[in-house]
């Protein structure tokens, strides 16, 4: 039987780092991995989907496009109403396609009082945005997506995108891309009013 022997070979390893240094290195490494994991997880999340509760957000409105005299609105102000949030930009060609339909739909619902339309101008400059609103005769509430906070909340991938939120603040429908007709918009809102 060969028992353990004193080491007589040449050892090429230096002394290991002290235990406190090892702990710091491992904690730092794990912390870094956690940050990377959470950031990757966040960036890979898709748009919010039907059934998701929409977090409250606020946004300013362009002068002339206020809502009930308010130049700053919050989603929570409209609890009990159907809210449509449309992300658009003046440089977005597909947005032009749906702009007249959105305005026509707003004219249909505006006197009802149970529906609110909000336009969120995404990554745009105000003079061009105003020219766009005037060009298509838009009259519903519109404002800049200040700091891209609203678009980040909805995790939009581009414009146009439109979100329909029910009376309880739950997202019921997300339209990615432009609407093709007024009836398409009505077919989403009408069931939510019942």
């Amino acid at each position: 039987m060969i028992d353990s022997n004193p080491i007589t070979t040449r050892n090429h390893r230096g002394a290991p780092p002290p235990i406190w240094a090892q702990i710091i290195i491992w904690v730092a490494l794990l912390g870094l991995l956690a940050v990377v994991y959470f950031e990757l997880n966040r960036s890979q999340q898709g748009q919010i989907g039907p059934g998701d509760q929409v977090s409250n957000f606020s946004m300013p409105l362009f002068s002339g496009y206020e809502l009930n005299g308010q130049s700053q609105i919050q989603l929570s102000d409209f609890r009990g109403k159907v809210v449509m949030v449309n992300f658009w930009a003046s440089w977005c060609k597909p947005c032009e396609q749906e702009a007249p339909d959105l305005e026509q739909a707003w004219q249909f619902y505006k006197d009802d009082g149970r529906v609110v339309f909000i336009g969120a101008d995404y990554v745009d400059t105000e003079p061009e945005a105003r020219a766009y609103l005037a060009k298509f005769g838009i009259t519903f509430a519109n404002g800049p997506d200040m700091g891209t906070r609203a678009s980040q909340l909805f995790r939009i991938k581009g414009v146009p995108e439109t979100y329909f939120i029910d009376q309880q603040g739950v997202l019921q429908y997300a339209q990615i891309g432009p609407f093709s007709s007024v009836d398409e918009i009505k077919s989403i809102i009408n069931p939510m009013l019942k």
């Binding site: 022997n5 004193p6 080491i7 007589t8 040449r10 050892n11 090429h12 390893r13 230096g14």
Partner: peptide
């Protein structure tokens, strides 16, 4: 540094390493 200058860990001066090695 370690690859170019290997250091014998237990080769302290005056040790009985050779004797131990022979015995082993």
């Amino acid at each position: 540094r370690m690859w170019t200058k290997p250091v014998p860990v237990s080769a302290a001066p005056g040790s009985n390493q050779d004797a131990l090695k022979d015995e082993y």
